[in-house]
Amino acid sequence: MSTSDSAVLPRSGGMGWLKGQLRNIAPFATLLVLVALFSIASPSFATLDNVANIARQVSVTAIIAVGLTFVILCAEIDLSVASVANAVGIMVAFFTLQDESVNIANIPLPGFAAILLALLGSLALGAVTAFGVTVIGIPSFIMTLAMLQIGAGICAMLVRGQIAYNVPAPIEMLGSGSIGPVPWIVVVAVLVLALGHVVLSYTRFGRYVYMVGGNREAAEYSGVNVKLVLAAVLIISAVCSGIAGMLGVAHFGSAQQDEFDNYLLDAISAVVVGGTSLFGGQGGIGNTVVGLLVLGVLNNGLDHVRIDSFLKILIRGLILLLALVINVYAQRLRAQA
């Protein structure tokens, strides 16, 4: 076995392997450096409580990022994730009985029906995106930009500037309850991440995702149904966003317009900072997990070191820029290795 193992490595040996792995090593090194920095700078950072905080803070982003990882692996993009999350979160509240004080013409239904309808809603939004991209042929960048606006429109129509508070009991529990010391939303995020990883790494569909992202023309010429794969990843992305939206509404304690606005950038950042290639075909959920932790540690750590909150925004932008530079370089180095 040793001969075939060594044959995996290019001729340049260790260096070549390192170059090929840059996209995996760089984010992990970033994570370690950030953790070390914040641990030294603040005694309250490296505590068990704070680890739980970080996990809770990235959970909603994590669920969205799983779907987005599928899309980006196919060398497409979904800009509608946060908007779809918001819309589906509002849908589930819309189908739940609200207090007298909430002035929304909603349609109260039993809890399971509300959840089912909201899930179907996310499926339908994903299907519309998939139809636009694969059948009509609109670039995903533009199609999901339109869907972003449509999602915002649905939010606006359903709540009309009001705020809803009640969601079905199971959603309430998963979004804001805990199982022992562990918040349910963290459990759900871990499960969704695990499921995404299993699908991408061990199923035939997952292989198709990587192949379509790696060389779409070659996938086409190998008889892979490329359009079907693209449609599937866009629907997966919408459903993940929908789940994140429902749990997020319970997590925040309210359903209103524009409450997920930060999550588009966060989810894209998590996937890309983690090292999944924007050109498709390289990366995975493992990378996304590292990316989520980098973002979570950064956001949380900056709070602990009492930094100017306006500077915080700039720092996030710079970190994202750095990740993009590494992403593009890693692609180039790997092509050479």
Binding site: R207, E217, A219
Partner: peptide, 28 residues
């Protein structure tokens, strides 16, 4: 050749891509 093959993937995945649905249903 470039429009037929996946340069970044190992040889075996290049060979198996067009028969994947015959050798596996759900799991690769």
């Amino acid at each position: 050749r470039r429009s037929m093959l996946f340069a970044q993937e190992p040889v075996y995945r290049n060979v198996s891509i067009s028969i994947l649905d015959r050798i596996s249903r759900l799991w690769v």
